[in-house]
Design a protein around this nucleic acid. Structure first.
Lengths: 137, 137
DNA sequence: CTTGACCCTGTAGTGACTACAGGGATCATT
DNA sequence: AATGATCCCTGTAGTCACTACAGGGTCAAG
């Protein structure tokens, strides 16, 4: 067992996290509260480092904190079927796909607005016009 | 001038907005505070209806409230050049493009994870593995 | 001892809403 | 006039995932 002990600042730096965020995760129940030094400093070991890395990785992939929470619980039970893991990941992927579709549709509308803007004065502005009810203001 | 007067509920329904959101926009300074009835109900006219429609439309297109605020100010000055309007819209479009690219990259990673998941038990789960530091837990 | 960096807890803010709570107003019906 | 349903009011707090202080303590090096 790696006996390396880390302060919160060290843990944060190693995982590309802010100190405040680490404390937030602890408060949120995602990261277990660590032992403390005599000076009341948090004292992290490799277990915490691994867990925080997992959390950050999942967050970077856009999983919500609740999804991360569920994934962590699942990953703690190694004999469990990974069907639930799969389901979470697939639902998340579906959501990402929806967001992409929404944004692409949105971009098309913005393209239309911008490409039709002759850019003279506001009174003749096609962007303002298309934001206005009935294109009449 | 259309003399039609609307309550907040009517205004909200006509613009697909929640009553609370209308009050929020008023508090945020986006929508001017309307006259009041003797019973202290808000009393909206067509000007407000037009303005709220503009706000909703811009919000639907993903403009931030500050961007909407700027667009409203620009649209109130009809002799002004619409270069500033154009700039706001283009910046927003660029942001949407960035988001799309991010999400597409993210989706690729999720695809990779999910497609490699044999889905047996957690100990062999490729999703959990790819979330874990060094793929070793 | 001093200094600078880090740590602690608690609180509040971000952006854009959203949801109460408690109480008043309005309208239609009886 | 009473009643019930619906709407309105203000104020407060919550959502999500952080983020940024404020005020004070700890640690290590000089």
């Amino acid at each position: 067992m790696d006996a390396r002990i880390l302060t919160i600042g060290q843990l944060a730096r190693e995982t590309g996290t802010k100190v405040e965020t680490v404390r937030f995760y602890e408060k949120s129940g995602l990261l277990p509260a660590p032992a403390r030094t005599e000076g009341n400093y948090r004292s992290y070991d490799r277990t915490h480092l691994n867990r925080l890395s997992f959390i950050r990785r999942a967050r970077d992939l856009g999983f919500s904190l609740d999804q991360v929470r569920a994934l962590l619980a699942l990953s703690d039970d190694r004999e469990q079927s990974c069907a639930a893991v799969n389901a979470i990941a697939k639902e998340h992927r579906a959501e990402v796909e929806r967001k992409i579709a929404d944004l692409q549709s949105l971009k098309k509308e913005l393209d239309r607005m911008i490409d039709h803007c002759g850019c003279g004065i506001v009174a003749d502005c096609r962007i303002i016009e298309s934001l206005s009810p009935d294109g009449r203001r």
